[in-house]
Design a protein around this nucleic acid. Structure first.
Lengths: 174, 174
DNA sequence: CCGTTATCCTACCCCTCAGGTAGGATTACC
DNA sequence: GGTAATCCTACCTGAGGGGTAGGATAACGG
């Protein structure tokens, strides 16, 4: 479904975001080697993934000694849809479904004589929609927040959690 | 994301369901060759797919002359989740997420020392949940129904399309 | 009982891509 | 200028997607 590109890449982003949330933000970027070691992932492979993230303007890099990567924007303003799309390419449940120019979902087999537009289109558009929706509803900050909250044991987050409709707490820690 | 296994397989199921809805149900199964020709898909390949569907007890077969396939259950009682799962195997957005014995989603990397259970788990479980939910909420009958309805009663659709050029009428309909 | 028409089963084949390695060029700090 | 990092291009390997081929088996119809 999603490959390890998405998994590893998201973990890198989460690692960067966690640092930022913890307060030691701004000045010093984090070297990829550090992240690779901490997460137990191959450095050379992460380089490819983080290159995609950079081309998508989700992270910024500083070269040379004491260089590394940092988030291009605050974690609250980065949706997981952006991250996953940067890593995996266009996010469609099946080849025949594509989104053209903001929003509308199109089936490439539309407009064929005889049978109506593929009857299965209804299914794939729904699946596509639900994936994209949950991915855009979630920001990088949401991913990191619970862990950070557990560490800080703070009350500040209570504000947000009251405002954001936690429609989906399914799979809450079993 | 999903391969053509899912796409072709769903189209085969839809073909079988359509026949049943139209009234000519029961007695005579449909030969795969007929479906392959009608859908423009390679017969030999469909044989593999339909074999999976049969092993999952979603279709029944009759061998020999005038043989073929038919739905094992009425279309309203077949969820698209069953169909896709039979064709694609276990349906998880990423390898590390699996559902164990009815419901609970588990991450294989849980319980590792040092870092908390993968921070990304929250993301993948949500994606997983939303996919499975939309897939189980939809039955094969739902897929076929609009087409059948359009054929029987051709006028009703004109109302909606004239009113608002909504981005995507199909995902919106419930 | 024999030919026809279908499902079944096993094996193979090609090609892409995921997943990763290797090695070097470039940039920046000290 | 050494060193530590990002950058870039190329290459490798195995698995799986997307089929094809060929035959065994089973049920009709005459």
């Amino acid at each position: 479904m999603f490959s390890t590109k998405a998994e590893y890449g998201v973990r890198v982003m989460a690692h960067l975001a966690r640092r930022e949330v913890d307060g030691a933000h701004g000045a010093s970027p984090i070297a990829l080697g550090t992240i690779a070691e901490a997460e137990g992932l191959p450095l050379a492979y992460l380089e490819h993934l983080v290159a995609r993230l950079r081309r998508a303007a989700l992270v910024e890099s500083r070269r040379g000694a004491h260089g590394g990567y940092s988030l291009a924007r605050p974690a609250e303003r980065i949706t997981m849809a952006e991250v996953v799309e940067a890593l995996e390419g266009e996010i469609a449940p099946i080849e025949c479904i594509t989104s053209n120019a903001e929003g509308t979902l199109v089936c490439v087999r539309d407009g064929q004589p005889g049978h109506d537009p593929c009857p299965t289109k209804l299914l794939w558009t729904r699946v596509q929609g639900s994936i994209v929706r949950t991915l855009t509803e979630m920001t990088l900050a949401d991913l990191v927040e619970p862990a950070a909250r557990a560490r800080r044991r703070t009350s500040a987050a209570a504000l947000r959690s009251a405002g954001t409709p936690q429609t989906n707490s399914e799979t809450a820690t079993a």
